[in-house]
Amino acid sequence: MLTLTDVKKTFNAGTINEKHALNGVSLDLDDGDFVTIIGGNGAGKSTTLNAIAGVWPIDSGSIIINGQNVVGMPEYKRARFIGRVFQDPMTGTAATMEIQENLALAKRRGQPRSLKWGITKKEREEFHELLKMLDLGLEDRMSSKVGLLSGGQRQALTLLMATLKKPDILLLDEHTAALDPKTAAKVLELSDRIIAENRLTAMMVTHNMAAAIKHGNRLVMMNNGRIIYDVKGKDKENLTVDILLEKFEQASGQKLDNDRMLFSKNAKE
């Protein structure tokens, strides 16, 4: 479904701020894989997702989605294959537009936009049913501006938008990090449900090791712009936070330096 081969990216090349963000990332995702990605500060987790989404062009390597090399496509063209949810709840929705208008935009992701009505009556009914599923009462506020919603509500809506038109790949970039623990758990649960129901191929960056272990069928650990540990199936099910920390030190030869990750070490989820 998704194959990354030796993807490299250097920011500010040739300057004092030069940063080798991706040093040859290779990854092969099967249809229906749900990968969680963890790693230290600046390990290249979000950068990997941005490379896939096409936020900027990569320096070398290939990114193949569904048999098609997308390296030459700008972000808006790749959107056809990709649904995304970002860390900042403000990022994923248009605040000055109505809830239903946001959904209508998302329903046309990757399609050419015509001069037909931006939202139809049939879609309104469809969105009403979908919003009910979120159980946040949003179905009764469809013509409210998204800017009036809370961070958790906006994140749930973004998740729904990202999957409204079934994406080949769903990219979740620390999408619960800005939420309070209770809301974060709810949004995570919703992510699980949507991914399972639609049998989506998904990648989730998280700083929460427990969450990374609990969710998905595969776990990838990154350091210094490389994948240093990749585990799936039975091995992944048997993982614990301690094993992960040990693996990290073995593979990278250093202590884990992600403060948020260590803080959350003992958190329940």
Binding site: E75, T91, A94, L105
Partner: peptide, 9 residues
Amino acid sequence: NMSRAQGIN
């Protein structure tokens, strides 16, 4: 940003 993520040029 959101617009590009939704496939808008």
